[in-house]
Design a protein around this nucleic acid. Structure first.
Lengths: 115, 115
DNA sequence: TTGTTAATTAACCTTTTGGTGTAATATACG
DNA sequence: CGTATATTACACCAAAAGGTTAATTAACAA
């Protein structure tokens, strides 16, 4: 995944990683802290890999404190992702309105169409 | 990719597909219209596949008009993606602030710490 | 030194992704 | 009918994603 924005979205495209980010939004946490909720579903190396993905996307940064790696959130790429969406939001909302109107017309109207 | 939110983010994690969405945010377009900017880089079936990904994520819907498949944007999943981000935005911004404060302190301050 | 805890690396496997080329389908047009 | 156009389906392939186990590194503690 070449460009930063793609890396960000790709990193977000996984529930485990999103949960990790959610956890980190409550504050710094070590790898094992972050791993804990998932150790029923996967092993530690798998967790490490997920964190690597987040790190490569610039979404987290890892520090060092003795043998621990305290991770913390870096919101900046997220802001860029939101920015991309916002850039198109107006058009999307217009589409939503159109859809709304469409559904409204359909619901109200003469029953035909559903393939 | 199981859950809808992951599908949405995954669909967004590709510049081609994002460009297609951008194009669609300007209005309905046929497959070949959408394909046109990318035909130097890939074949039509590849484009079709990208559109399939967008469709499976619910980001677009395809109509039928003779042999054409007019595509149009569906902003709803995008809204859900933004929602997820907004849910954590406050925390992220706090992190950003913390980073800001950290950098500020570092730049301004008493010369120590430089690792 | 020996051991323990935290985390990563390496080698490997399976599934998904993103592409290809070559048909196949569907619809309009003479 | 036969042909052109728009789009998709199929079979295949290489690379990336996501997981595993086993071994390794790093820091502390006895």
């Amino acid at each position: 995944m070449r460009d930063p924005l793609s890396r960000t979205f790709a990193a977000l495209a996984d529930p485990t990683r999103r949960a990790m980010l959610a956890r980190l939004s409550e504050g710094e946490a070590n790898v094992s802290d972050l791993a804990e909720p998932f150790l029923k579903d996967m092993t530690l190396p798998a967790v490490t890999k997920h964190l690597k993905v987040l790190e490569n996307a610039g979404l987290i940064t890892k520090g060092r404190k003795a043998q621990w790696r305290p991770c913390q959130l870096n919101g900046e790429p997220l802001r860029e992702a939101v920015d991309w969406m916002e850039q198109h939001r107006i058009a999307w909302e217009a589409q939503l309105d159109r859809l709304g109107a469409y559904l409204k017309a359909k619901t109200k109207g003469t029953r035909h169409g559903r393939k």
